[in-house]
Design a protein around this nucleic acid. Structure first.
Lengths: 385, 385
DNA sequence: AAGCTTTGTTCGATCTTCGGCGGAAGTTGG
DNA sequence: CCAACTTCCGCCGAAGATCGAACAAAGCTT
């Protein structure tokens, strides 16, 4: 059933969203009596979820006591697993980062090794932040492949050998674990951090491959099989010769991904293997690389033009390794999208580089965990327990 | 705020969805005491929203009194406005059609004339069904162009001269009016009638033009400007020569729409002007027409393949005038989608012709009106008034 | 300094909801 | 055919939640 209006969970949602910072705000927003609100807030304070800070500005009368999330007793973690890296951030309940770390790690070594690594980092970060393990409430993990979100099991991930159908949450105990595709958590991180007011947003990650996270009505759209946003294998015109690892040809990823650009540069006699090498060449002023990146932007723009017509987003955010040279990538993307999409859909559309940057994934993963914990249902359960 | 759990609105939602047909069902589903449920049901009966029918089957004890929506005192209407037709259906609150009509009408004559026409039909249908005008609670209207849903104003519709920004709901008084794009209401009608359990569905209308209605998580996705689903102007490869009325070239609609196929047939010396003519030729066994329809299916499939990767729907429904020859259209679509989309996304994907058929739009428009009226918030307002 | 404004708490009145009880209306079994 | 059993439903007192008025607190205004 739907949560009660003005239940403890609802009240906490308003506080955590910043919609209300005082008891009177809450009374006004919920329509409940001030006395009732006080009772709810007391319950939340007693459970250690909310705290009072010094009085705020008076508006001509007694100054209100400010309310905010109590950030001491709980901890959450966001984990960003890539093909060869592992980033972990420990966050408090308001989403602020308490401690973070980053290191190399090979995801192909399989779930046991990798998750042991993660677990160890979690302990280290908890130590650094001075919080006991028992304070850890939930962990969000972004992985580079498709996941059945409801169970946290990777679903035939191409670059994660040994992970297929592995029940990731079972590895940890005493903590709720949410696992999602890395692009989804990046989209979530970007949305909550920099585009909170936006209803419909696309986050496009241009790295070795190309993927897309979809936020519809403020929530992640994962699709029927959790594979939504897999735009790397959409066909682009005029590149029938480019074979893709998926078996088809002319896939976007096979012509505009970082790996594809590097290959083309290699053919031109320039040393480049990864998307990072491409970025380095562009930053060094290499015109060939620059031209190829811009051309990749046009191809990505061709696909995005279709998706703009179909999905009609408010904002498209470009992230991933290649967005470090976003001026050139964006030029190509914008050029094509504004030419090929319908005016009604592009009129208020903005296409921008990621503002959250490299941390979008860890932060998004952490936010996934925090929002799960702060969901009205869960809070009501905690308060009424 | 969120509606109360087990509020009158919630209870009615359960009854109307068929999830509960007796008081004990409701008590079980909501977790409320039987006495509380009885009180809610009494309030709903008193307001004329629910009625009791004869007792149902006993399960070993006293047989429960069945509950269902009271279908007598209210009426709703769905209106399907096309370029040259007008269909109106009068429905009771459970969605059953009480009376309907269809006639020719030219939408280009402008809102006043067309809406006067609609209003007259409404009166006639109300008369035929023996219900007073005052019983009419809400009207849903599907129009062939983009609409700002919140205000019911068409937004620069290309084939509706005189309608731009016209406040359609203001024309009617005493009745709530919801206006949406025709493809959206078709998608809604199809979903609620034939695919109620499906989370994510695409409804593709192939007629003169090509459009798409999007159901995500059971709800219509309209996008930021209400232009979502406008897939007719997505580019397809290898048809740069085909100019489109939108100013671009190689638009899907310009090569695979009914009008485009008719033009190609005309070039081949066959008399065809509209999508209907194309259908007639195919049904007459003309091989040229058949080949072109199948080829159109492949082109539509090319676009849908991209959208399947991006959106990951469970079901794609093909409707519109050309779906009357769906065997040929679907063959082309399926062929391309299953070849070009990712296995994970296509594994449980079904692509089927419309089951609801020609009535999807009127029914969907009516359902739009009914669901608006039955929304928990609205019902709570009515019951507590 | 006295009064005004806004905030927050206390407390009794009121409204909701709960759950037990008993009557109603069937089925089952002898 | 009747007694026992099961399930459904309304009634009603008890328990709980919410409200709003009154009051106290704390700063602003004049």
């Amino acid at each position: 059933m739907t949560p009660q209006p003005g239940s403890a969970g609802d009240v906490l949602t308003l506080i955590s969203a910043g919609s209300a910072t005082t008891r009177s705000d809450l009374a006004r927003l919920t329509g409940l009596a001030r006395s009732t609100i006080s009772q709810r807030v007391d319950a939340l304070i007693e459970r250690g979820l909310v705290e009072e800070t010094e009085s705020g500005e008076s508006t001509g009368g007694r100054p209100p006591r400010q309310l905010r999330l109590h950030t001491e007793d709980h901890a959450f973690a966001g984990v960003d697993l890539g093909a060869t890296h592992c980033r972990v951030a420990l966050m408090d309940i308001s989403g602020d980062v308490l401690a973070e770390c980053e290191d190399s790690m090979v995801i192909g070594e399989g779930p046991e090794k990798v998750l042991a690594h993660v677990d160890q980092r979690l302990d280290r970060l908890l130590g650094a932040a001075g919080r006991p393990r028992s304070a850890l409430r939930a962990v969000g993990i972004g992985v580079p492949g498709p996941v059945e979100f409801a169970t946290g099991r990777p679903n035939n991930p191409p670059i994660m050998p040994g992970w297929n159908d592995y029940p990731v949450p079972d590895y940890f105990d005493g903590v709720e674990v949410l696992v999602d595709n890395d692009v989804n958590v990046m989209a979530l991180g970007e949305h909550r951090n920099s585009f909170a007011g936006t209803g419909h947003l696309l986050f496009v990650k241009v790295g070795t491959g190309i993927g897309c996270g979809i936020v519809a009505q403020g929530r992640l759209h994962r699709g029927a099989q959790g594979s939504a946003g897999d735009i790397g294998h959409i066909r682009v015109s005029g590149h029938e010769d480019a074979g893709c690892r998926c078996g088809n040809s002319a896939c976007l990823e096979a012509v505009a991904g970082g790996a594809a650009i590097a290959r083309r540069l290699t053919e031109l006699g320039l040393a480049a293997e990864t998307g990072g090498d491409v970025v380095a060449l562009v930053q060094a002023g290499n015109t060939q690389a620059l031209r190829l990146v811009r051309e990749a932007g046009r191809l990505i723009g061709e696909v995005l033009a279709s998706l703009v017509n179909f999905f009609n987003p408010e904002v498209i955010v470009i992230g991933g390794a290649l967005s470090r040279v976003h001026e050139h990538l964006l030029a190509g993307i914008r050029e094509t999208v504004y030419r090929r999409s319908l005016p009604l859909a592009t009129h208020h559309l903005s296409i921008t580089p990621s503002r959250t940057g490299i941390n979008a994934a860890v932060l998004g993963a952490g936010i996934l965990a925090i929002e799960h914990y702060l969901s009205p249902d869960n809070i009501n359960r905690i308060v009424n327990a």
